[in-house]
Amino acid sequence: MKVSIAEIADLVQGRVVGDPDRMINGVAPFEQAGEHDITVAGNARFLKKINDCSAAAMIVPKDIEIPQRNLVQVANPMVAFARVLQHFHPPVRPLDGIHPRAEIGREFKYGQHISIGPQVAIGHHVTLGDQVWLHPGVVIGDKVAIGNDVIIHPNVTIQERTIIGNRVIIHSGTVVGSDGFGFAPDGTTYHKIPHTGIVQIDDDVEIGTNNAIDRGTFGKTHIRQGVKTDNLVHVAHNVTVGENTVLVAQVGISGSVTIGKNAILAGQAGIAGHLTIGDHVTVGPQTGVGKSVPDGQIVSAGIPEMPHRLWLRVVRTIPRLPDISKRLRRLEKRFKDIEKKLD
């Protein structure tokens, strides 16, 4: 594919500085871009190394001017770069049809241009919209409803009565709609609590590989519009994840948590049950959240790196902290008594 810089600028609603007719053959990262590629220099770290880059053109912030370089100035360089990548590497579309080795249940309804691969198992009373692509090994339970332009990658399981919206992508190995972790103890053993609810995934959601999203005990577990999850994320029963929230790898969310919109939960963050995480909240990596967090807050409690010898000293000190605290309080009291006598 060859595209002029002017055409790229039109695609991303940018402004060309330099030669608008220069042809671009590909897209590459800053350090690897060659004389026929376009790249992105979206922040000061890259802009300082402009002279080391061989790219034919660069996508830059709209206020950046670089002499003798071809530029596309835009408001948001990374979003523009993503659009250019999508243009050069459009998604592959499979052949339409149902593979003869797929197993299809009763009263299966589907739209136009569907592709169902080998070893797919579809239950009874399932509905698929238009342009749905089920890769090999996908399992769809009874009474599942899936919207338009959905891609479900190999070996995904969608349990019964799950609702999936439009333009959803679910990556390999994920299970949607399994039972939540609910048991009633009697002091000796545990009795399983049936989970009778569902999972609802709204439009424009992308779920990473090997996620586990549990159905509600009653009602539903709700993944709202625009949510993106990384690999190895667990969402427990009756959780609501708000619009355009991001869950990074190995995040664990306990039951009945409500997460607001545009939140970011960094890697290995854990949220205790029945809490509310507000809009635009950032939870740092390895942070255990034990109480609700209001809108706009940034909370962190992860383990920072440190030299190993210092870490050994810190670990030895931690068990002694309660005793050290008592001694400090006693010393404070003695100093106050001495100050009173001196006065």
Rank of each mutant, 00 (worst) to 15 (best):
N51L: 11
N148R: 02
G117S: 09
E332I: 08
M78F: 15
A266N: 09
S254Y: 06
D230I: 03
D337G: 08
I140W: 09
I277Y: 02
S292D: 08
P94M: 03
P322S: 13
A80I: 08
I198H: 12
G288D: 07
A80M: 07
F30K: 06
I338N: 01
Q250I: 00
A9L: 04
V289Y: 07
G34I: 07
C53T: 07
Q112I: 11
S300V: 00
D295M: 07
A80C: 02
I158S: 03
G42M: 09
R45A: 11
R15I: 15
V227I: 07
D295H: 10
G302N: 02
V132M: 00
F30I: 12
R224M: 11
A301F: 05
A184D: 14
V126H: 10
R330S: 14
P154L: 02
I146P: 06
G111K: 01
Q225L: 11
R329G: 00
K333H: 11
L331F: 11
I169G: 03
H191E: 05
E206P: 01
G177N: 02
P77Q: 10
R329N: 12
V40I: 14
I318P: 07
H36F: 10
G34E: 11
R316W: 08
A9N: 04
V92K: 15
V199M: 03
H89D: 13
I104D: 10
M23G: 05
R327F: 03
V176P: 07
K340F: 03
G123L: 04
V246D: 09
G42V: 00
I198P: 11
A80F: 00
V138S: 06
K48F: 03
E107V: 06
P29D: 13
G165A: 12
I163L: 14
F335R: 10
K336R: 15
I104F: 04
K333Y: 01
H234W: 08
M58H: 03
F88G: 08
P307W: 07
L11S: 02
K326W: 07
V72A: 06
Q200R: 15
K49R: 13
T317V: 04
M306N: 01
A44Q: 13
Q250N: 08
D10L: 10
V168A: 04
E160A: 15
G18T: 00
I151G: 05
I114P: 10
R309P: 02
P118G: 09
